[in-house]
């Protein structure tokens, strides 16, 4: 049993306005698996994601990727890590440069991550996520939310990452499109062995896609464990209230009775 790919330990982050966004947050992700981070607004899940991605510096704690400590290191020494850890952001409309075509944006991304790939290679990746070549030259405002999220996934996969942070990646999509993107993410994981840190406020989505779940509230982890267990038998009061409010859970109960 190899060591986990990502180990987050005891993260603490307090913003200048006094809000404690991360209160001793710890979790780990195994190679090729998915951990779901569930919480409502203000739970600190986004802050945790940003720390893992190197976009924010915590007050204390440790983030170890493939055995290497990421915090308190110079950016230039972590170039290769930044390639292998990618992100799919929440808002499809702002996740691409509005002034560049999708193709150009992805080319730029390849350059930034020092990935050697040519135009045909990019088109092939887009094809793989279900975006035809005709759409590659389009600008973000010409594509729908679902299409843009697929493009964002393609972009994330270009540098051959081992870990992808999906930050509310399906939250802005219609439910039927959400299902397509969730399927795509699962296929990609099966084919490429990518690990996911899947952040969402939707417990039903997280239960579906994650094998382990961490529930956050006001910066603290209130419960964690295998997804199926949390769904079937939540221990913490907050988890229970989240579950009670989740429509899919209500439907499940209604159908069972």
């Amino acid at each position: 049993m190899s060591a986990p790919l990502l180990i987050v330990e005891d993260l603490v982050k307090r913003y200048p306005n006094g809000v404690l966004a991360a209160d001793h947050v710890s979790f780990s992700v195994d190679e090729g698996s998915t951990i779901g981070i569930v919480g409502e607004s203000g739970s600190g899940k986004s802050t945790t994601a940003r720390v893992v991605l190197g976009l924010e510096i915590p007050d204390s704690g440790s983030v170890r990727y493939a055995g290497r400590e990421l915090l308190r290191r110079r950016r230039s020494s972590l170039r290769d890590v930044r390639r292998e850890v990618q992100v799919v952001p929440q808002n499809p409309q702002t996740s691409f440069n509005p002034r560049a075509s999708i193709l150009d944006s992805i080319r730029f991304h390849a350059r930034v991550t020092r990935t050697r790939i040519d135009r045909a290679g990019i088109l092939e990746m887009l094809e793989r996520v279900g975006i035809g070549a005709g759409n590659a030259a389009k600008y973000p405002h010409e594509l729908s939310g679902g299409q843009l999220q697929r493009c964002a996934i393609a972009r994330a996969l270009i540098p051959a990452p081992r870990l992808v942070v999906c930050d509310e990646a399906v939250s802005a999509l219609d439910k039927s499109v959400q299902a397509q993107v969730l399927n795509l993410l699962a296929d990609v994981q099966r084919d490429l062995g990518v690990a996911y840190v899947f952040i969402s406020h939707d417990l039903a989505v997280v239960e579906h896609i994650a094998s382990d779940v961490v529930v956050m509230r006001r910066g603290r982890i209130v419960e964690s464990g295998p997804a199926a267990e949390i769904w079937a038998d939540p221990q913490h009061e907050y988890t229970r209230s989240l579950l009670d409010a989740t429509p899919e859970k209500r439907i499940e109960r209604a159908l069972a009775s």
């Binding site: 940003r50 976009l55 952001p89 702002t94 930034v112 991550t113």
Partner: peptide, 12 residues
């Protein structure tokens, strides 16, 4: 905007 974060997180 998110696309700036994506670039920054990837080492730009």
């Amino acid at each position: 905007a998110d696309f700036i974060d994506v670039a920054r997180a990837s080492g730009a």
